[in-house]
Design a protein around this nucleic acid. Sequence first.
DNA 1: TTGAAAGCGGTACCAA
DNA 2: TTGGTACCGCTTTCAA
Lengths: 336, 336
Amino acid sequence: MATIRDVAKLAGVSVATVSRVLNQNGYVNAKTESSIRSAMTALQYKPNAIARSLAGKQTSTIALMIPDIRNPFFPELAKAVESTASKHDYTVILCDSDHDSSRERKYFDVLKNKKIDGLILASYTVQPDQILELQAEGIPVVLVDNSFPAHPILSLGVRNRQGAAAAVQHLLDQGCRKIAHIAGPFQVAASHQRSLGYEEACQSKAWFVPSLIAQGDFHAEGGYSAMLELLDRHPDLDGVFAGNDLMAIGARKALSTKGRRLPEDVKLIGFDGIPVHWDELAFSTMTQPLSAMGELAVDYLIKLMNGEALPLEPHELDVELTVRPSTVRSGLETVY
Amino acid sequence: MATIRDVAKLAGVSVATVSRVLNQNGYVNAKTESSIRSAMTALQYKPNAIARSLAGKQTSTIALMIPDIRNPFFPELAKAVESTASKHDYTVILCDSDHDSSRERKYFDVLKNKKIDGLILASYTVQPDQILELQAEGIPVVLVDNSFPAHPILSLGVRNRQGAAAAVQHLLDQGCRKIAHIAGPFQVAASHQRSLGYEEACQSKAWFVPSLIAQGDFHAEGGYSAMLELLDRHPDLDGVFAGNDLMAIGARKALSTKGRRLPEDVKLIGFDGIPVHWDELAFSTMTQPLSAMGELAVDYLIKLMNGEALPLEPHELDVELTVRPSTVRSGLETVY
DNA sequence: TTGAAAGCGGTACCAA
DNA sequence: TTGGTACCGCTTTCAA
């Protein structure tokens, strides 16, 4: 492997000059430059990124940390992050914390040691202090799908409360008169906000009682059992808002197990907009702009890495109502 | 940030000695070591991985390159790769080539510059020469879900031909007498092998005609149109083997559009074993051991990185028949 | 058992 | 406009 010194020698100049053309900074004579460039191609010179990182202070590497890449929420986010990052010549380290805060901690250490330039973090287990510490070590962080409003942490998410309220409103619009809610883990801020949105939209209704809310776990299994529970408590419910799509999937199964037809007997709506492939069973949901979030997260991170000071109020994007046959018979949409 | 020199100074030794305790190699007096260790904790010393990489010759970083993380085939693979790698203190760079060979090439360059220790590659567009070149540059490669038997490239996949034949056999066992096939892209070796497996299992049958094969594209859309085509050509078909699950999804839609009931009128089986969430619609498939593949890929890569010479015949794992209601009425299985 | 010092391959400051 | 050179922080001979 040719080094910068080899190039300098062949071109008959100093390494400093070669470095200048490499980084396109500083003055350098046109003929000098061209002779250097031909030396570079002659030697097939490729700058060693490691050496560059050590001397300069950029690794051109960011990390994306998520709880579980198998959760259909994340591949799309990851795709957008990766693609945007690589567009800006950043490389992405994938960290799957597996919802395990000890793995998270371990990764934080590794990432510090590796001097990554920045981190995009989706976590429901981090403590704000940990993020602050990363920032103190010079690693900018963009928090996604979560926020700590009391701390100086740039965060990015969606309007969960408003979105949830809109979901419930859609059910009301479709004629529902008794709408239940399968709540996600209340420790997860986004989840909590959705529950608040539900309550906000229902509280004033005569039919509303707290027992219309059942606790789920963001997984299909939890949605399934929560739905059974709800049907048991309220056999006459005619609408369900699930705190996320995975729970909606479980809920659908429970509903069909109990002989409820969608949308005739019960209307069901979820939240997230994870990819679905079956028109027949696809259900209505509030779709998150995952791709836009990933892109925006990288854009913000780059600004932070460039030292720009950004407003720290949580940046919240809008979710979009996606109508499918679980709430409107004709809401059939080609999704494959 | 404390450096190794700070530690050396505080402990009253040389950096060489500190380096020795850091790497647990070479002789070092027990008391010396303990005084160094306490200096390290006192200074909160964390070795700089970049400097380490430059001086040593390991970056402890591998890359995982895949065509599209949104393809449900890959998240599980990625999860296993990531988790196994991190167990061995390797960090994983995620490269999503987006099925674009120019992006692939660009990434190869970046990865060389960054001196990654190894690469796990899933690609249907790479040329063997490119892999050879990476290897020549000292970057070991494990090729996944593809192979170039004529070249010295370690590859890992499943027994596609046998698996496909087994899928068809399952349809035969269920009483099918006219089985169609939706083929994936023939340029993809795995896909081609599956088609061969289908032909192998059908060729001897009296009902077999080449027009029972339609071309798909590994996506739901292609499966859909291929299925329509097949139904048009052979209204009496009673079994379908789709070259992958995504096409099976499209095929299912086409079948239901045309009023065919599963499994009564037509039995459908796919290939891959991507995650499904709906019991009701889940279809039979040949499940690939994705998690095992990811783990094995890393294990192999680590051996290669350690300089071990490994046998270069493609390592092929078995696929497993997963029976669901698209082929057997009672094949209901809880999948959520 | 320990230390001095020469790299690893760049960057960037200071002179020339 | 160019070159000399001191780092960046760690590893690894080679001597002591």
